[in-house]
Nucleic acid binder design. Sequence first.
DNA 1: GTAATGATACTCGGATATTGGTTGTCCGAGTGACCGTGG
DNA 2: CCACGGTCACTCGGACAACCAATATCCGAGTATCATTAC
Lengths: 155, 155
Amino acid sequence: MRMAKGVEWALHTLLNLDMVGGGPVGSGQLAEAHGLSPSYLNKQLQQLARAELVVSVPGPRGGFSLAKPLETITLLDVVVAIEGAAELFQCTEIRCSGKIGELSPPPKGACAVSAAMRRAEQSWHDALAAQSLADIKADLDRSPLVRQIVRSALT
Amino acid sequence: MRMAKGVEWALHTLLNLDMVGGGPVGSGQLAEAHGLSPSYLNKQLQQLARAELVVSVPGPRGGFSLAKPLETITLLDVVVAIEGAAELFQCTEIRCSGKIGELSPPPKGACAVSAAMRRAEQSWHDALAAQSLADIKADLDRSPLVRQIVRSALT
DNA sequence: GTAATGATACTCGGATATTGGTTGTCCGAGTGACCGTGG
DNA sequence: CCACGGTCACTCGGACAACCAATATCCGAGTATCATTAC
């Protein structure tokens, strides 16, 4: 069980898009900034576009730009955009299969195991939703030359 | 990103092992109870044995039995036993690669993105560690005939 | 009758295929920019 | 000098392969049981 690399790529790329300013930036430049596969980063950016976190501009001088300010983008938004909204723990209802399932009456309530796992997952989601990309950007701005480096790398 | 099925299998199997009593139960019977692949459940049980959540008894009349009371087994223990202790979000340090990486001085602090993701993951771990299998068993004991069904299915 | 002994059946344990999903690559559709031409 | 039209290069977008890990399966190693036999 490992989170897709695309999440890390997307997070850094979104931060870069903010630092560079408003204009659209091509996926090739964004990939070069961190030595990533351009085509694959492009695919991740399309996922972000579908989630309406970025807007895509076709044609020459096109590319991707932020759709909203970083303050309104949470870590959960990015994770869901890349990974999808499926739950980590997916209950297969094995309690209704096999010998035990045949002997038991059809269960009424929810599966206790599933409910417990869902509770834990909920607090993960809450913690992800509580942190916005602006918070992370504030950390990066501790060393103010970062912004200059990003801007010069993306021109 | 999806949690392995083995976690669900392990959780239900551990609960069954508790309900059936102290004697060892073969992986075949445990699998039949929920209609699972016997060999694959056996593999998961070996993982639980390495984590010292169950003890394995070889030979005829052998099988697996609980190594400690359910009160001392948390959801986190089971997840780590099956999935391993690796983190969901694994930082690749892409901030040190590509153009930006070459232009930047070697970073001093930890990656802000990684730190934020780790915070969220920590609260997931905390929530998993806060729930023991005894808590789940208490939920199941709402309908007291469950125990009888499990015992009759595992004899 | 009792104890030793060998065969046997049953279990765990790990080595070996198979499948599904992530990762990576490629080419086509579409669009804005640029250049040349005519008014 | 300005407006218009055609060509072009550049970008996104989705379809297509490669790789890795989870899933599933199989066979060998080890052990308690049971029957048999000798004392």
